[in-house]
Amino acid sequence: MSLSLKHLGTVWKYRNMLGQGLLVTVLLSLFTVLLGFVLAFLLAMMLISKKKALNVIADIYVQFVRCTPMLVQIFLVYYIIFGFIQLPKFTFLGFIQFERFFPAVVAMSLNSGGYMSDVIRGGIEGVDQGQKEAARCLGMSSSQTLHHIVLPQAIKNILPAFANEFVTIIKESSVCYTIGVQDIMFNVKSIQSGTFIIAEPLLMATFLYFCLCFPTSKLIKYVERRMRASDQR
């Protein structure tokens, strides 16, 4: 194996494919983080619920997500769940195949939701107990207390972890090429098999992932610092 400028030149001709892959990776990650958050929030509510059954169900789910590989989860969702449920076959934005893209979003959201639920639960439980007591002593109901007092304060604990999860999702989404989602890695594979050039497409993919994740995590650090500054006032 060798690296050469000539190879890089050849791969550059396929830059459109990598560009499309980049778009798919970004969309996949955005949809996942949003859907995953909704799921995570529901799971967190179940985890902090006083009903034992809800705790147990949510806990089993979270343990399942944590203790099985992401790749296996994607296959489970794609081949088993969406083996039974027929999705309409169409493309959107010109080239994104819905029947592959959608299961990938679902699988990654199920995974991300499981991880994030614990973060949200932690964020809610991290709010000083006295805050809850003060609100309840003023006659506020438990849902009013959660909504007006606990959640606004929990957000500060949750947001940084939530943004970090976004970076993780971008990276983990690279396994979705295995079910034919045309993300960055899928196009790398295509270029490799079309040109028999192995190294250079991989390097370009590495560069793309880095360019996605590095500014994002810098941005997160910046926002975190700003939030801490506003705490001190």
Partner: peptide, 28 residues
């Protein structure tokens, strides 16, 4: 029954006025 705590437990994300009015508005 009004309650006053050792550690105040004011709501840090609300102004003084909002601290005072949130329960009368929501509860009463």
């Amino acid at each position: 029954m009004g309650m006053v705590f050792q550690h105040f437990n004011l709501f840090p994300h609300k102004t003084v006025l909002e601290n005072l009015t949130i329960a009368p508005i929501l509860v009463k």
